[in-house]
Amino acid sequence: MSKTYSAADRVYDEVKELILSCELPGGELISEGEIAERCEVSRTPVREAFLRLSAEGWMRLYPKRGALIVPVGERESREVLEARLLVECHAVRRIVERPESVAALVEQLQANLDAHRAAAGDEFTRLDNDFHQLIVDAGRNSLLEDFYTSLGERRRRMTAASVHRDPAVSARIRDDHAALAEAIADGDADRFDALLQAHLSGVHDVRDVTR
């Protein structure tokens, strides 16, 4: 029994990672047999993993046909971006009120940017996530930090989808992040607000994202 559940956990982790990295893109139909062969397990742990992923909203099950990877819908995209805008802009306003916090954060953001310039694939999306999480964490509001962290998987998947859709997005993300870090270094929360709104709208192709 423990072996069955251990295999189900492994399949769950592997398939979820494929979804978050967009190696299994939204709208794709996959079968238990396909995943069982890929993960080198029987269909039983795959079925258990699929049920768990379905309960979390990552896939939709169709008996005898397979599982559909649920795409990121327009409403979900807009709501995630609006939430990000609210939390990050609030954090920056708190940060610039404490000049002693600005230098430490900018140093962390610069290190992230340095790593980002050489990154690709999953490492790129992880660093993108980390850049924005650093800003929120520096705002020193534990409830907002926890909430923003809870959006991490959705944030990562949306960024991966944008990069897969248009490889030029990677360069834009790096340039936008440099501009956002500069606004924080200058203590200019209003400029940060405008830059972040343009960044989120442009990278994720969702127009008129507002707080």
Rank of each mutant, 00 (worst) to 15 (best):
P167E: 01
A120Q: 12
E97W: 05
A194L: 06
G187P: 02
E153A: 14
Q110A: 11
S150K: 15
L151N: 03
L200F: 02
I173E: 05
L113C: 05
D114C: 11
L143W: 15
L109N: 04
R174D: 06
G202A: 09
H177R: 13
L180K: 11
R165Y: 01
H90G: 12
L113Q: 08
P167N: 07
I135Y: 11
E145I: 12
L151E: 09
A194F: 03
L109M: 05
T159F: 06
D188P: 04
V209Q: 10
R117G: 08
V136H: 02
A194Q: 13
E97V: 09
T159I: 11
D146V: 05
E97K: 14
R126Q: 14
D205T: 12
A198W: 10
E123I: 04
D166M: 02
L105I: 03
A111L: 08
H90Q: 09
L127M: 07
F131Q: 01
Q108M: 00
R172F: 05
F124D: 07
R172V: 07
A178G: 03
H199R: 09
P99Y: 07
D176G: 09
Y148R: 11
N141M: 13
A183W: 03
M158V: 04
V163T: 00
R126K: 10
F192G: 09
H164L: 03
R156K: 15
L105D: 04
R126F: 05
D130N: 02
D193M: 06
F192D: 07
N141A: 14
E153D: 12
L134V: 06
I135S: 08
R172E: 15
R140P: 02
R140A: 09
R165A: 15
F131V: 06
D208V: 13
D130E: 12
V92C: 01
D175Q: 15
L143G: 08
E145Q: 15
E97C: 10
Q133W: 14
A111H: 14
L105E: 01
N141W: 13
V203F: 01
